[in-house]
Nucleic acid binder design. Sequence first.
RNA 1: GCCACUGUGGCUUAGGGGUAUAGCAUCCCAUUGGUAAUGGGAAGGUCGGGAGUUCAAAUCUCCCCAGUGGCUCCA
Length: 649
Amino acid sequence: MSMIKVEIDGNETREYETGITAGDVIKDVYGRKSGCVAVLVNGIEKDLSENLNLGCVVESINGESEAGLYILRHSCAHLLAQAVTQLFPEAKPTIGPPIDHGFYYDFYMDSIGDGELKEIENKMKEIMKLNLPIIREEHSNESLRDMFNNNHFKIEIIDEKLGQESGSTAYRQGDFLDLCRGPHVSTTSQLRWFKLTSTSQAYWRADSKKESLIRIYGMCYATKEGLKNRERQLQEAAKRDHKKIGKEMELYMINEMIGRGLPVWLPNGEILKSSIEKFALETEDSYEYQRVTTPVLGKKELFEASGHLPHYAEGMYPPMEMDDGIYYLKAMNCPMHHLVYSNKKRSYRDLPLRIAEYGTVYRNELSGALTGLLRVRMLSMNDAHIYCTLDQVAEEFANNIKMVQDYYSTFGFKNYYFRLSLWDPDNTEKYIDQPKNWEETQNHLRKILDDLEVPYEESIGEAAFYGPKVDIQFTTAIGREESMSTIQLDFAAKERFSLTYTDETGSDNGEVFVIHRAPLSTHERFVAFLTEHWSGNFPTWLSPIQVQINTISEKHKEYANYLGQELKNAGIRMRIDDSDNTIGKKIRMHRKMRPAYMAIIGDEETDNKTVSIRARDGRQRNGVPLKQFIQEISSENFNRETELSLIPE
RNA sequence: GCCACUGUGGCUUAGGGGUAUAGCAUCCCAUUGGUAAUGGGAAGGUCGGGAGUUCAAAUCUCCCCAGUGGCUCCA
C-alpha cells in the first residue's frame, strides 16, 4: 500500500495510506468531536467520506463557519424531504436549497397546515435519531432518469444537464434518495438544531405560469446556542416592527373602508414625513433642483408614449373612461416631467436640467403583497428627473450617490448596500428591447460605480423597463430585503418623447439622457425603515414629540405652561401633561409616544426657573436653566443631530 | 392573485356549543404627588361580515372581508 502526503489546515502535513477518507484524516488530527462537517480538498468542497488517493491539501469546514452552516442547512433540507416523502408518499420533492438562517424545500403536493408541519418536524427528529449514514452515489444521467422516473421535476433538472455532463451525483439516506451535488454531512444525527418555521406557496422555477408548489421553511444551526440566538433575534426584531410601533406612536392608520395599501398619515407620522420633506427640499435646493407639480391622472396616449402601457400595465390601476378619452392614474412621474422638459426649447446651457416633485403615484400592487407602510398602493415620493448629456451622466450619478450617502448618515442608516440592477436578455418582453442600448448604459453605470469605488452587487432582471439602475438595498427588521433608494438611467425617453436640445453648434441634438432618482425611497417605505431602525426612538429633529413636559403637582402648572410656550416659540414640538396623575405614572404613560426628552417640573424648577431633563433612555440632568435648555435643544434640532446630546452619557 | 395561519370593547388578552374574562387607556371622585403602576367607582364588546347546522354558536361548517408570513411583483 502506497502512502500519500496530506496537508491539513495549513498547519501540518501527515502521511496516510492511499484511499483514506477525509473524515478519517480529520479524526486523526482533531479527534472525534471536531465540529467538522465537510472538507475542502485542494480548494473544492467534498464530503468527509471522500477518498484521498493523491497527495493533497485538506481544509476542514466547521459547522459553525458560513460554509459549514450552508452544508448543514442543505443536509437539513434533505432530511425534511425524507420526512415529507415518508409521511406523504405522493409528495414530489423539487428543489431545496440552504438560505440565510436555514433552508427550504419545495414540494409538489397538497397544501398542508400547522398540524402537518409539526408532524413533519417530529418525523425529522425521528430520522435524525436513527443516525442514518448519508451516502454519496455517482450515476449516469440515464440511470438517474430511471431512478427519478416518477418525478418530472427531477427529470427536468437531469435533462438540463444532458449534454453538459454525462453523470451526476445523488445522496442516499435510508431509503430516501435525492439528486444533489453535495457535499453533505455524513449522518442524519449531525442535524440536531433545526426547527420548521412556516409554509408558503411557491411556483416551480419561480414562474407563476408553472406548477404551484408547497414550500416549507426551516431554520438550522450547528449548535443549540445558534438556534436559540436566532429565535431571540427574531423576537427582538418583532419589537421593532414598524406596524407595531406605528400603531403605538399613532404614525399612520389603514382603514378598510378607504382601502388596502392606502395608508393615512396621522399627525405624528405627518410630522416625520414633513420633516423628511423639509430636509430634502433644503438639500435639493443646494443641488439646484427645480420643483414642479403635475397631475395624478393622465391620458392613455401619454402612457403609451412613455412605454408604461406596453411594459408596465399590470403595475397600473385600470383605466378610467371619461367623455374625452381614457385616463390612467400615474404610476410614475416621468412622463409628465418629460413634457415639462419639452415644454420649451432647451439649450445645452440648460443641461443638466433637474426637475423635482413631491408627487404621489399609484401602483396596483397585488393585494397579497401589501404590508404596513412597506408595500402600499399609493406612493409619496420626492422624485426627480435629470435631463443631461451622456457626458454629464457620471457626475449626476456621483452627486446622487453622494446625496444618498449624506442622507443616510443624517438618518443614522448604516446597513445597506448598492445593487446594479440589470435587464434580463432572456425576458425581453419586460423591457424595451434594445440590447445595444442596454449593454452600453449598463457598462456606463458599471464604470461610474467602479470609478467612485462604491462596492456593489449586480443583479440580473432587476432593471426598470427603460434602463438599468443603481438601487440601494436594505433589510427590514424581520429580515426581508427591500429596495430603498434608486437612481436609474433612461435611454429610451429621448426617442419616445423627442427630447432634444440645441447644442454648441446650433443644431438639434437628440442625445438627452434621463436620470430618474428617488434617494429617499417613498415616504411610506422610508418611514417604515426609519421606524424600525430607531425602534421608534427617533433623533430629536424627527421625534413627533420632542419634549414631553410633566408637572409634579398642580402648583407647577403655570411655569410648565410658560416653558411650553417658550419651547413652542423656539419651534420645538412639545406636549404638556399637567393632569393630577403622579409623576411616575406620567413618565410611564408618555414613554409609549417616545418623546426625545421629558421635562420634569416641580418646586425646584419653578423656584429657580430651571428644567430637569430626562432623556428617552432614562439619562437625567437636573437643574438646567430654562434658556440654556431651549438653546441646547434648538441647536440639536436645527443641526439634525443623530443622538440625544443634551445629557452626557 | 396564490398557499398557510390569524381576526374577542381604543390597546393587550381569557374563554372555546348554553348569550363574554381581565389589565391598560377613557370618564368621575378622592389624593398635591419628585422620575416605569396612589386608591375607589363608572362606562364600554354580541365575539371581522354573511349564510348554515343546532332547542341553543363567539365556540362547528361554508362563503366573503381584513391582517400576518411567504410566493410572484416591487419604491
